[in-house]
């Protein structure tokens, strides 16, 4: 069982990284909450206010924080909870429940499917595409990468380095060509070569640039038109350090190309990442993958329980 062994150690490595990565989150959110829960001997307005502040510090955002708090208050009242400590369990439970990923969330992995990876500049789209390619290749799937970032200097080279590392084919085009035409070619290639998954890397675009968002809409339509029977997955990549603007990003990208999930990156250094909770609560888009480092296997399926526990410092003492 050597395979199982490596799988296990890899998994352990990943979560220890998530933990080490989220140390700072824990220190800010977790310890803040810890403080809030221990320095109060009863539940009063100061207690709630302190909680609210700590959550805002975690980039969860005012609206999501309000909703979470409202629910918590109602539950505390209904269940006649008096102990601030019990509140913590309840709060964590609520957030876990909210962040739960649907059972069919990863159906697209069985293929044939097109995974469109989109987002603003510098969030880690190309790296995420490279990592996903490696993961699916390791699972024995036939993967093709489409390099539809025809704008940024050397984006093609960066992606082809990843493609080589992962050992998969890449369909590209010279800088400055129409990304939709790259997609057209890539879809034909994916069909001809019987690919399971076509991963599409796109150029970073700020969500308030109308033309670029329209371009994205066109890419999305070309896929649907050229390969109507394939499964579709549109993943937005969000930088874990991003604040409230990530909400606007998710909203706008969702408008241009219906989003099915989030890849939350750079979670090895960010203190917060609470914006994921805000987005799930406001737009109902689930986090599907989480990135905690630069190595190939530092991108994994999102585990709400581990994430929320790590965020709030639960289980730290066990490990």
């Amino acid at each position: 069982m050597p395979e199982e062994g490596t799988e296990k150690s890899r998994k352990k490595g990943f979560f220890s990284r998530l933990f080490s990565g989220l140390t700072k989150s824990r220190n800010s959110i977790g310890s803040g909450i810890e403080r809030a829960f221990t320095s109060y001997d009863r539940i009063d307005e100061d207690f709630y206010e302190d909680l609210e502040e700590t959550m805002i510090m975690g980039d969860i955002g005012i609206k999501a924080t309000d909703q979470i708090m409202e629910k918590l208050r109602a539950q505390v009242k209904e269940q006649k909870i008096k102990d601030p400590g019990l509140c913590k369990g309840l709060l964590i439970h609520n957030i876990k429940e909210q962040m739960a990923v649907d059972a069919h969330a990863y159906d697209f992995e069985h293929g044939p499917s097109v995974v469109l990876v989109i987002g603003v500049n510098g969030v880690g789209k190309t790296t995420s595409v490279g990592k996903l390619a490696g993961i699916y290749r390791d699972e024995g799937k036939k993967v093709i990468i489409a390099a539809a970032d025809t704008f940024r200097a050397a984006a093609n080279e960066q992606l082809s380095a990843w493609a080589q590392r992962a050992g998969v084919d890449m369909i590209g085009a010279p800088e400055g060509s129409d990304p939709a035409s790259v997609l057209f070619d890539a879809v034909q290639a994916a069909k001809a070569r019987h690919a399971d998954i076509l991963l599409v890397d796109t150029a970073g675009r700020l969500h308030n640039k109308k033309n670029l968002m329209a371009e994205l809409g066109k890419i999305d339509r070309v896929i649907s038109r050229e390969w109507p029977e394939c499964m579709r997955e549109n993943l937005i990549v969000l930088d874990g350090t991003t604040g409230q603007n990530a909400l606007a990003q998710a909203r706008e990208f969702n408008g241009a190309a219906h989003l099915t999930g989030i890849i939350l990156t750079k979670m090895d250094g960010t203190a917060k990442g609470g914006i994921a909770i805000a987005i799930q609560s406001e737009l109902g888009i689930p986090v599907k993958f989480i990135g905690v480092g630069e190595k190939m296997d530092d991108l994994q399926r999102f585990q709400p329980d581990d994430y929320v526990d790590a965020l709030f410092g639960v289980g730290e003492t066990q490990t």
Binding site: D59, T241, T242, G243, K272
Partner: peptide, 12 residues
């Protein structure tokens, strides 16, 4: 620094 950075900006 990315202008969109959240609370983390201070730590960075």
């Amino acid at each position: 620094v990315d202008a969109m950075t959240g609370q983390e900006a201070v730590n960075v």
